[in-house]
Amino acid sequence: MNIFRLTGDLTHLMSIIVLLLKIHTIKSCAGISLKTQELYALVFATRYLDIFTTYISLYNTVMKLIFLGTSFSIVWYMRRHKTVRLSYDKNNDTFRHYFLVLPCFLLALVLNNRFTVREVLWTFSLYLEAVAIIPQLVLLQRSKNVDNLTGNYVFFLGAYRGFYLINWIYRYFTENHYRRWITWMAGIVQTALYVDFFYYYFKSWKNNEKLKLPA
């Protein structure tokens, strides 16, 4: 474990806490894409298949349980909770997320480290996580003004994989035989998708104005 990866994990956890706070306290999911939340639940479900078979550390297991639990409860809140579901912006959250699932699965079948069920699903979860934010970014551009909590949620979500990129560079130079081409490619694509969001996020923060993404 290094400081970059720990910061990345905590930033990821922060993004989920910001989202849960928004949904749980003000009972609203306005501006949040259910499609992206469903994709994240699928990402964790296919990535943490070995949660009960491979023990790495208490931290690792606890964090996996937190990510699984929070991602599924967010989907539940947005689909089932009597008040929260009313604020779901169904008309603008229309990105066909299965258009992302299928290509990621096909790519995982072709481009993986080992052709086993678990490895293909794990690789699928990496590819899917890289593009899972797209429905959310599309929704942000469609919803006129972005509230602070949603903006902060997307910011922390983008920052976490950015810290992972630094972690991979650090591990590449400090651990011999640390080669993760597939992980690195997916991580670079994932972070690159946030670049324009980061630009507008910092610009709005510098000019102290409301965050608005150009359509």
Binding site: R5, D9, H12, D50, T54, I56, S57, N60, M63, K64, F67, N113, W122, Y164, N167, E175, Y178, R180, T183
Partner: peptide, 10 residues
């Protein structure tokens, strides 16, 4: 923990 082919990351 030992890296299980890179699976020691979340």
């Amino acid at each position: 923990g030992r890296s299980h082919e890179g699976k020691d990351e979340l």
